[in-house]
């Protein structure tokens, strides 16, 4: 699944934290850093709209009232620029009560 798809890749509820976790599955390579970050930015913005427009709660009523985490799962180790992107994205997300996290999982080829 390409990171450029403007849809939600996965929605989950973590009972340990009580959070709703919206996942972005990012299998794109980092050959063109700028293009990759722009695609991620578009996707994160689409997720913000999905949450703020309350579509999330209409599609998945179980998620209403829970803290929201957007988790970016990447297949490849990101460059330093991604750290800066993540910090900037969290600055925007914090007033919306949304946390953005990231992790790398290399378990297999891209989806």
């Amino acid at each position: 699944m390409a990171v450029s798809d403007q849809k939600v890749d996965a929605v989950g509820i973590d009972h340990a934290t009580g959070s709703v976790v919206l996942t972005i599955l990012d299998a794109q390579d980092w050959e063109d850093e700028r293009e990759h970050l722009l695609a991620l930015q578009a996707k994160v913005n689409a997720y913000f709209s999905y949450i703020q427009g309350r579509e999330l709660y209409e599609d998945y009523p179980q998620t209403d009232g829970r803290p929201v985490v957007i988790n970016i799962i990447q297949r490849l180790d990101p460059p330093e620029a991604f750290e800066r992107f993540l910090n900037a994205a969290n600055d925007v997300a914090a007033p919306l009560d949304i946390t953005i996290t990231a992790q790398v999982f290399e378990g297999g080829s891209a989806p």
Binding site: M1, V11, G12, H15, V21
Partner: peptide, 8 residues
């Protein structure tokens, strides 16, 4: 379940 969800 300790977690559940929907995957596109």
């Amino acid at each position: 379940p300790y977690s559940f969800g929907w995957l596109a």
